[in-house]
Simulated scan of single mutants.
Amino acid sequence: MTSTRTLMRRAALAATATAAALVLAACGGNGSDTGSGTGSGSRTSASASADTTAEAHNDQDVAFAQGMIPHHQQALEMAGMAATQASSAQVKDLASRIEKAQDPEIRTMSGWLESWGEDVPSSMPGMDHSGGHSGGSDGSDMPGMMDTEDMDKLKKASGEDFDTMFLTMMIEHHEGAVEMAGTEKEQGRYGPAKKLADAVITAQTAEIAEMNKLLGKG
């Protein structure tokens, strides 16, 4: 049924685009209105492109972006603590790399949701752990998300205690992200989202191995 509706919608869009092209061709013959005709054509092309993008995703793609954004935001909150609370240069370096990788990914996923007309999670739900994605469910229900008690403990830790706690928590956090990304690869439809999911799996699996070594487990 979904496939049939999609084909019908695309056929309708194609017919609309063809009709628009004929109208624009007629307008183009009027030398006094050439600029106006060109502008309308650009708007028609942009609209068709937006429609194509909107059709190229499914509910899983939306769920992935709406879930991964607050998940990444909590990782950024945790990584931000390392600058002043960690004692290990290696932990600080890892935290910096996490920030540099995940912040742009948040912006990318936010852009997808905006283009799809979907809700974008609030700026920093990790601060109050109230979620922020559609439905208002607690963000700690997502795989690997820390609860308020865990985050409070991390905020109060320093030195080697912080290093150990940070690495232990971030391993769990990364494992959750890898799980979420795996679901997107299997069930998602939007190409860029599936590509990002693959990148998350590759990068965070490598970081999990790195963190286990820092904990003496690798």
Rank of each mutant, 00 (worst) to 15 (best):
A89Y: 01
P121D: 08
E175R: 15
L215F: 01
W112I: 04
T18A: 14
Y190K: 00
G39V: 08
D51R: 12
A50T: 10
L215D: 07
G39R: 13
L22M: 13
E77W: 02
A203W: 00
A89I: 02
S140N: 09
T52A: 11
K194N: 05
N30S: 06
D147S: 05
S47Y: 07
S110D: 04
Y190H: 15
H57Q: 09
Q90E: 13
I98H: 05
R189H: 07
R107L: 13
A82Y: 05
A193V: 09
T168Y: 04
R43S: 13
L13R: 10
A193G: 11
M170C: 08
R107W: 02
D150H: 09
M151K: 03
S87Y: 02
E77L: 14
M81H: 14
G111I: 10
F162I: 12
E118S: 14
S32P: 01
M146C: 06
V178R: 06
T34N: 12
N58V: 02
Q204G: 02
R10G: 00
T108I: 06
G41M: 12
I98S: 04
P104S: 03
T168S: 15
I208F: 07
S140V: 05
E77S: 09
D51F: 01
E99M: 10
P104E: 02
A12P: 04
A46K: 13
Q85D: 10
E114Y: 06
I201E: 13
E160N: 08
A82Q: 11
G132Y: 05
A15W: 01
T53S: 08
A82P: 08
Q73H: 02
Q85M: 07
A193W: 04
S137F: 00
A197I: 04
P70T: 03
K100T: 14
G182S: 00
Q187N: 15
K155Q: 11
F64A: 07
H71P: 07
S49P: 00
D163R: 07
G39S: 09
E55A: 12
G135W: 07
A20M: 11
I171F: 06
A79T: 04
Q85L: 11
E118H: 10
E207C: 06
S42C: 05
A199G: 10
M145C: 07
I98V: 15
D103Y: 02
Q66E: 03
G80Q: 09
K194H: 04
T168V: 03
D103V: 01
T202P: 09
N30L: 10
S140A: 11
N30W: 08
S130L: 12
G191D: 15
A197W: 01
S130R: 13
G188N: 08
H71S: 11
Q66D: 02
V23Y: 03
D51M: 11
G67N: 14
G131H: 05
L196S: 13
S137C: 04
G111T: 12
D198K: 13
A82M: 10
N212G: 00
S40E: 08
L214I: 06
